[in-house]
Simulated scan of single mutants.
Amino acid sequence: MHSEKISVPLTDELFSEIKHLNENEQNRFFRHLVQRYIARKKKEHLRADLKEGYIEMAELNRSIAESFAYAEWEASHISESNRHAIQYNKEVNG
């Protein structure tokens, strides 16, 4: 694994919080922080991309939903009618 060293300026207060760690522990600490930061940024970008996509598709999705509104109503109405017919048959035929 290839690695590079970087220099990160820290405030005295922040440095005093990590100076008790040995060099290896500090390296792992910063590596972990960077990995978490990158993962969080990737999530943020994904959320932003998804939001943008949903916004772009909103008008088309609304149009499609409106186009099928009658079909959904009809299916619901038929289903309800069938349920009543079954209930009626049970009551009549006992």
Rank of each mutant, 00 (worst) to 15 (best):
E72W: 01
H77R: 14
E56I: 04
N82K: 07
A69V: 10
S81G: 11
E91C: 10
A75V: 04
Q87G: 06
S63M: 01
E56F: 04
L50Y: 08
S81R: 15
N61P: 00
H77S: 12
S63Q: 05
A71K: 10
Y88T: 15
L50I: 13
Y54W: 15
R62L: 02
I78S: 04
E91V: 14
A65C: 01
S67A: 10
R62M: 02
I78M: 06
L60T: 07
I55A: 11
H84I: 14
K90T: 10
E80L: 11
R83M: 06
A69H: 12
W73S: 04
K51S: 13
N61H: 01
A75W: 07
N89I: 15
H77N: 12
A85L: 15
H84E: 15
L60F: 07
E74C: 00
W73T: 05
E66T: 01
A69F: 09
G53N: 11
E52S: 08
W73H: 08
R83G: 02
N61T: 01
I55K: 11
H84L: 15
Q87W: 11
E52W: 02
E80N: 10
E52L: 10
Y54H: 14
L50G: 03
E80C: 06
I64E: 03
S79T: 11
E91F: 14
L60P: 00
K51E: 14
L50D: 05
S81P: 03
I64N: 03
N82G: 05
A85F: 12
S81M: 15
A85V: 07
S81F: 12
E52M: 05
E66P: 00
E72Y: 01
E66S: 03
A85M: 13
N89V: 15
W73D: 05
N89T: 13
S67W: 03
M57C: 08
A75M: 08
A65P: 00
L60I: 07
A58Y: 05
N61L: 06
A75G: 01
N89E: 15
H77K: 13
R83E: 05
E74N: 01
E72G: 01
A71D: 12
K90H: 05
I64W: 01
E52C: 03
E91T: 13
S81W: 12
L60S: 04
R83C: 02
K90G: 02
Y70E: 14
E80I: 04
E80S: 11
S76G: 10
I86V: 04
M57I: 06
E80V: 04
Q87F: 11
E74L: 04
F68P: 00
N89Q: 15
A69P: 03
E56S: 04
R83I: 00
H77Q: 12
H77F: 14
Q87A: 14
L60H: 02
Y70Q: 13
G53L: 08
E56C: 01
E72V: 00
E52V: 01
Y88V: 14
E66A: 03
K90L: 12
G53C: 08
A69C: 08
Q87L: 14
S63R: 05
F68D: 04
E91Q: 13
Y88D: 11
E52P: 00
N82H: 05
F68W: 06
R62H: 03
G53E: 10
W73N: 04
E91D: 13
W73K: 07
W73Y: 13
